[in-house]
Design a protein around this nucleic acid. Structure first.
Length: 371
DNA sequence: AACTCGTGGTT
DNA sequence: TAACCAAGAGT
């Protein structure tokens, strides 16, 4: 097998396979409808692409349906209150995406008359749209002949051309390979074909080479090494951080919550007040913190026996949860009360949901006749 | 360039 | 079960 033959034949083989095996998605126009001239809504393509960044299709589906039901077009989204959008995004992770989603919708409204620009550089200039999303949106929604490179494309190219160099260093070489395969005629379908292949056949762990449309072209498969590629540099171990979190409820059922700072970890999201989350202490495994955490309001705070564990991208978190019933006239130094009608568990990021779920039965035990 | 930034499913 | 993994962007 040689590079020239792969570059000559792989593109057509992929499109042929895609015409028969394309996955159906709520934001997609399938290859048959596409051939009749139908085009996907750029708003829906953009929304799906942002949600799909580092996120599985299964996790995205429900969020996509809720977002498009609440905000059917980019102008509706641009007019939405920040807190509502953040609440709807809660649980999906990488919350900078939600902040940039709103910034982008408003930029499309204010700078582009409410329509996504059919131009690579203009797309790239929008908040939250980087190299991948600009290329995929341009190719899928506007038929621009752009090369889309995501994790799927990297994996398929590494195997097809048996690239031994590990990621992330191999990224430029893999991008060059992908560019050589990108057709001028159906760049969007081509991009979606590679992603579908990567998601269903050329999978990370156990690729189904026996049913792959590129099996006769793939250099790694010829050498029986497809599953070993792409190579990746070892990742750094995750340190442990510790903290304390305060879950307080007033007699009328109102919860004491705060909006987190607009940037950084869980930025702009709702959360329980608490201490900073610092690297686990040197003085023994579960030694108490040298400086006791400051509660958001004076009350009879009680430490729950069971702690909480949660893993973020780059550290493990161990949290102690304190709970208290708060008097009706409480004046907190941090946060504000959200009455039961204004509080939804689903507005919380996952780590805060975990704290809520631990605290709720304990608070009900303190206050048995509540409600 | 290296680091930050979530989560749920799979192995 | 701990590690790995998924349609990356911003700084």
């Amino acid at each position: 097998m040689n590079v020239a033959r792969i570059e000559a034949e792989a593109g057509a083989a992929l499109l042929h396979w895609y015409d028969a095996h394309a996955r159906q998605m709520p934001w997609r126009v399938g290859p048959a409808a596409r051939a009749t001239g139908q085009r996907p809504d750029p708003y829906r393509v953009w929304l799906s692409e942002v949600m799909l960044q580092q996120t599985t299709v299964a996790a995205v589906r429900g969020y996509f349906e809720r977002f498009t039901a609440l905000w059917p077009d980019v102008l509706a989204l641009a007019a939405a209150p920040d807190a509502q959008v953040m609440g709807e995004w809660a649980g999906l992770g990488y919350y900078a995406r939600a902040r940039n989603l709103l910034k982008c919708a408003r930029a499309v409204r204010d700078l582009h008359g409410g329509r996504f620009p059919a131009d690579h550089d203009a797309l790239l200039a929008l908040p939250g749209i980087g190299r991948y999303t600009a290329a995929s949106l341009g190719a899928i929604a506007f038929d621009l002949p752009l090369t889309v490179v995501d994790g799927n494309v990297e994996r398929v190219m590494a195997r097809l051309f048996a690239v031994e160099q590990p990621l992330p260093g191999a990224k430029p070489a893999l991008t060059d390979r992908a560019a050589a395969l990108t057709p001028k005629l159906r760049p969007g379908d081509h991009a979606q074909a590679v992603m579908d292949l990567g998601a269903t056949i050329c999978t990370p762990r156990r690729p189904a080479c026996g049913i792959c449309p590129l099996m006769d072209l793939c250099m790694a498969r010829a050498e029986g090494r497809a599953a070993e590629l792409p190579r990746k540099l070892a990742k750094k171990p995750k340190p442990v951080r510790e903290g304390v979190i305060f879950v307080g409820r007033r007699a009328d059922g109102a919860w004491l919550l705060e909006e987190r700072p607009p940037s950084g970890l869980l930025g702009g999201m709702l959360g329980w007040p608490g201490s900073d989350w610092l690297p686990a202490g040197e003085g023994g495994a579960d030694a108490p913190p040298s400086v006791p955490p400051v509660p958001p309001v004076a009350a009879d705070w009680r430490m729950l026996d069971a702690g909480l564990r949660h893993t973020f991208t780059h550290f493990h978190l161990h949290l102690c949860v304190q709970i208290a019933r708060l008097p009706q006239g409480s004046l907190p130094t941090r946060g504000r009360f959200l009455e039961p009608g204004a509080f939804r568990r689903s507005d919380l990021p996952t780590v805060m949901r975990k704290a809520h779920d631990l605290a709720l039965p304990a608070l009900d035990a303190i206050e048995p006749g509540f409600r």
